[in-house]
Design a protein around this nucleic acid. Structure first.
Lengths: 206, 206
DNA sequence: ATCAACCTAACGACCGGTCGGTAATTTATC
DNA sequence: GATAAATTACCGACCGGTCGTTAGGTTGAT
């Protein structure tokens, strides 16, 4: 039974989350597992491979989660709502892993990086498609689809940076706040295309 | 004249942005400046001190920028618009530094970290105050002020992660998109409390 | 006897940082 | 205005330590 492999992964997740990938040594992880650092290499080819394993499976689960949420509706506004909820709640519920996945890309080799980027792009495309649909149906104001998708995703991803699982707000509560914020942000409302008053068009010098 | 100190800072900014703080060695920076690495220590006490210098002055400038923008109006919605514009445009125009400042906090010593956290909190409080005012005046829907401020700030900060200075969109264009997104997000619109079945509804505390 | 799952021991590379020294320039003293 | 003293801005060599990784041996269960 390879229970130790799972232990190593969990300890690594904890330490990468706490101290960061580069600040965490193989010895640290081994100590956390109660084994010698050389033994790590029986289960993983390298430190980077361990990081990649964590990030890849997280990304995989993120996609699966989104698919499940989206299957609940066919109406575009409802699907967007579900997508945001999926994204937010996943990031809060699996905070450590999503935090690592979105902040330790630097640690990956070029090959592994491109694999992950590809998956991330596929994920983003789903959101862009939803925005596109919404605009086509007149539910949302026309706009820069990619920029808006980045806005939505980074907004919610950032939840993993400040969320406290034992804090005042539940995952559901935060998800709801974000849902409404995003949906309102997308919906056609007062939209100004430039700073109308001329005196505001000049940026303060710095 | 201490022109070299400025050169070191600029090279460090470039390298920290490209490769990250931990992946950049003092030798790398020295090579980029055309000097020996020992000479770096004539200008900076340590690698960490160099990082802190960069981050601190960036934070200082960010605050100054916001103050100048805010001084132009007294009306709350207009001030929020100006604040978002300040935040976004600063992060796009000084992309490298703001990217470093928001992604390399790990590299700081506890003392330096707390100094920066303090400054960041002061910055956030300005936004929270604006939201609070807006809610009090009925311009915005009631909501979690802190969560919303995090949402706004991280949303815009993230611009520094994907923005391409030589890309299709100008700083001003992106700032306008974000402005509208945030303002719409804050403004009272359709607000639903949860997707979950009624008996599971967890209405967030107001 | 095999083999998975660990161990001990060590390797080379590289890191941030320090040391003593020095040429060039500025400042103080007469 | 000549000379001594001090300061600035750098260099080359080196140190202690840590890192990820590997080689090869040991153990215990099947």
């Amino acid at each position: 039974m390879a229970a130790m492999k799972e232990t190593i992964t969990q300890v690594a997740i904890d330490l990468f989350f706490q101290k960061g990938y580069f600040a965490t040594s193989i010895s640290d992880i081994a100590r956390g597992c109660g084994i010698q650092k050389a033994s790590i290499y029986y289960h993983f080819a390298s430190k980077e491979a361990l990081l990649f394993t964590i990030m890849y499976s997280t990304m995989q689960d993120l996609l699966t989660c989104l698919d499940r949420y989206l299957a609940r509706s066919t109406e575009v506004a409802e699907r967007m709502r579900a997508a945001v909820r999926s994204h937010v709640s996943f990031h809060l519920e699996r905070q450590k892993e999503t935090f690592i996945a979105s902040s330790e890309l630097r640690g990956l080799s070029p090959d592994h990086l491109s694999i992950l980027i590809e998956k991330r792009d596929a994920y983003e495309r789903i959101f862009q498609e939803l925005i596109h649909e919404g605009v086509a149906q007149g539910v949302y104001a026309a706009g820069e689809v990619k920029i808006l998708s980045y806005a939505i995703l980074t907004l919610c991803t950032a939840g993993a940076f400040w969320f406290r699982p034992d804090g005042r707000l539940s995952v559901d509560a935060v998800a709801t706040i974000y849902e409404n914020f995003v949906l309102n942000g997308l919906t056609a409302g007062q939209t100004r295309w430039s700073l109308a008053p001329a005196h505001l068009n000049q940026r303060p010098a710095l």
